[in-house]
Amino acid sequence: MKIKFFSLLLLIFFSACIQDDFIDDEVDPILRITSNIDTLAINTTFQLESKYLNNIGREEEADVTWSSSNSSVISITENGLIEGLQLGVSTITAQYNNGEGVLRDDLLIAVGETTTSSPLVINGEIATTSSYALSGDFTYSLIDDEVVLEFGDNYVASTALPGLYVYLSNNANSISGAYEIGMVEVFSGAHSYTIPGVGFNDYSYILYFCKPFNVKVGDGEIQ
């Protein structure tokens, strides 16, 4: 009887301790050229940028190898600085061996009279991944060098959650390392967020999380 009683007390005691919950957050590592350029003016230079995201979608330093498919049109340094040498096109390739394989990303660039980049706009849709309401169309765009996230009239989010937050992330299942846009204050109808300090190609997902309880509510893909 005493042994059973103390076993019960021990069971209660240990179940009151902080333990570990594991989250399945593995994603495919990727290397991404984040610069936006379509045409490079002849006899000018432009610094290309890249980003390596590891197997949980978190950015890591990477020793990227740059190359140009047509080096007589565009030359490139080991640091990704390109120069337009003559009119034409060239595919710029970034490569990185992360130990498990070679990752690469390509960007087709023309050399012309002026440097241009195409408007950056992605139209998408957020959807619930839980049983809380979340839906609506969005436009993710770059306006005056700032990322703007706009939701349409058909946007709806549940008001029942304590602390619903919106994030930009490279992992659809985790807000670890994500950019926190802020707490949701609009639960229906059109509204927008201007997101300073974020590059257009920096993130892959819009995530909605109940921050206090780490409950994923929904997401939308932006890449």
Partner: peptide
């Protein structure tokens, strides 16, 4: 009265992403 939440741990890296509290 005791209220606690568990650590949130990456199943991939085993890193504690969000520490638990009580």
């Amino acid at each position: 009265s005791r209220n606690y939440m568990n650590n949130l741990v990456s199943n991939t890296t085993k890193e504690v992403l969000i520490p638990g509290e009580a």
